[in-house]
Design a protein around this nucleic acid. Sequence first.
DNA 1: CCGCGACGATACCGCTAGGTATGTCGCACG
DNA 2: CGTGCGACATACCTAGCGGTATCGTCGCGG
Lengths: 214, 214
Amino acid sequence: MTKTVQDNRQPVTRVRPGRNEEGRLEILTAATTSFMQLGYARASIDEIADRLGATKGRVYHYYRSKADILMDIHRHVLDMMYAEVEPLADAENAADALRDMAYRHVMIVMKNLAFTRVALLSTTDLFMNEKQSDFVGEIGKVRRAYEDLFVTVLERGMRQGEFRETRARLLAKPLLGSLNWTTMWYVDRDGTTPETRAEIAEIVVDYVVGGVRK
Amino acid sequence: MTKTVQDNRQPVTRVRPGRNEEGRLEILTAATTSFMQLGYARASIDEIADRLGATKGRVYHYYRSKADILMDIHRHVLDMMYAEVEPLADAENAADALRDMAYRHVMIVMKNLAFTRVALLSTTDLFMNEKQSDFVGEIGKVRRAYEDLFVTVLERGMRQGEFRETRARLLAKPLLGSLNWTTMWYVDRDGTTPETRAEIAEIVVDYVVGGVRK
DNA sequence: CCGCGACGATACCGCTAGGTATGTCGCACG
DNA sequence: CGTGCGACATACCTAGCGGTATCGTCGCGG
């Protein structure tokens, strides 16, 4: 059911058409790694190409510009998030729904650390790109839609009497903050086994759910 | 009692010595505004100078490099935070202490939006500056010390039986996340009166305290 | 066997922006 | 009264980097 999110990238040819999809993904991941390690500005196209043992030509064969790569990263992350979290919002109990959503969200962040970190930290660099501001609006819509997922669950929980009564939209801000902040401190050590990830996720989730309950 | 934080910038001459302090602050604020609006990378020194109706010469008269300005912003924000929040950690009741600290933290963020936002978003750009990595370590220490403020209060609350028992340091991460995330969504509208700020702060604080309590 | 298009390399351009070198003006101070 | 220094302005240098134009090459369908 990710249709609504994925299909509205048609008007603008974000990606060069007729290209190999796997090849494009290679560029995308390499670029993401570079952006994470050096930041969007400091990471050069040549550096991305070097990481693949190639040259600029290969990169520009798949993407029209550096900014386009960044946009594609954003689209990638948002699609992933929405597709995995949206189905969990329907659980009978609002508290359970929120718990599942938060858990999944944090897990995605940890498993795709490079992507999510870049998507969050480079928001500024993206939104300052005057040209193609139509895409920025597009991204903004999806962000809003994702936030609405949590707002809706919060409102439901308030009506059901499980959650404290306040402005749901305002409450959603620090809530998403505690989830997204994971990108800022979580490190992908070698010794980090899935167990500790689950452990981290549960601590965060307990905090989140406790923060909205009565 | 901000001595411990402020005094350890002596070893490295971060700022050019013997300069007028107010003049330096003008540069600092102008740069902060530019960094916030355009991002650290896109904001040029010329643009900062233009904002002051001056030229590069004036900027480089006070700071040796662009990165130094960014470092000074970080120091400025961290000093401000630490100085205002640290005294609140001593309240008898751990829950009250945490409440006060969180409230103050969010308030500082809102009142100094440009500074705090830059300090958070440009963390990457800072830590990637290979040279002067000694200062980065310095910043890291202060960050850690600030985090310890909250960790200590959390541990105290757990011993007193008010807070849920978990890894205090891990719990502090999403906690600070919900506070710091304010920089990402709060906007300084004209109509934003102090009342709505207080309103926002209370919603966030309720969420935070609720998240750690039993 | 041919040509066409995906794939990629090479060479090159142009501009932006950080940094420096140098000059100028005014004021405090001996 | 000159002289040193803070507080800037001006002019200039230069490296890095995004983007383009062009040319090889390999595989595949007709």
